[in-house]
Amino acid sequence: MKITLQHVDHIYQEGGVSETAALRDVDLTIDDGELVAVIGHGGSGKSTLALLMAGLYQPSSGTVELTGSKDPEHPFRSVGLVFQYPEQQLFGESVFEEVAFGARNQGTAEDYLPVKVREALEQVGLDPDVMWYRSPFSLSGGQKRRVCIAGVLVMDPQLIILDEPTAGLDEGGRKWIAQLVRRLNEEGRTVVWITHNMAEAAEVARRVIVLKGGRVLLDGPPQQVFSEEETLMSAHLTPPPAARLVRELQRRGWDIEASAVTVEGAAEEILSHLASGKEGGHA
């Protein structure tokens, strides 16, 4: 499913969620099957963007259009949004009830609910037989996060937006989320990942959009975006350390590819440079 934003303004309305900032004249197209990271600080408008894309906010002016939805009458029903700290919205008596909520709201038949809930739980790596009757409140932080994501996946969204999905999780939890997101994307879903973690964006996304003060500051593949160090600094963002190291080495005269923005990429570049240096003896 493709999403197109044209000349979107969103004026902050008093009484809304306080962290949502205004958006100004945003033009953006995210194609079917893309995996995009949206980066920006609090107040950059990234959460507002998420709410607009999910159809929960209406733009003050401009249009947000979805094409290729399997439910053309209600296209926004094909968008799933995982909120920041989603476990703060848990309410169900059991994991089953919690996950079934969205599917039930969609009008899924009661008989069919268990099938869908089972599928969703398996997608997030939770054992349905163990979890089914447990209270979501009794789970660990990481498990709660998974239940919340299952609660969105159960609606089978074609476009899935995750607002800071790794916030508050440990290393293991973050790695797991990154894997899940890649898999969801491989299954053919369009994914928008909102984060302030540059390293995460570099590792996961194929396209990075940087927001600043409600406007799109940069938009392109991670290699390109993270090479714009000065522009990023103007938004108080710094490229991930691995990318900064590569840039620093370039500045010191190393002949290496600036496209290395991940740890693995940088390690390979540096090792091959060191190896060639041994043979050829570089300056």
Partner: peptide, 18 residues
């Protein structure tokens, strides 16, 4: 708490709550 309520309403609406 009102802010929190706003957020919860949005989140449950995102899950199709009417």
């Amino acid at each position: 708490i009102l802010e929190e309520f706003d957020r919860i309403v949005l989140a449950q609406r995102a899950r199709g709550a009417d």
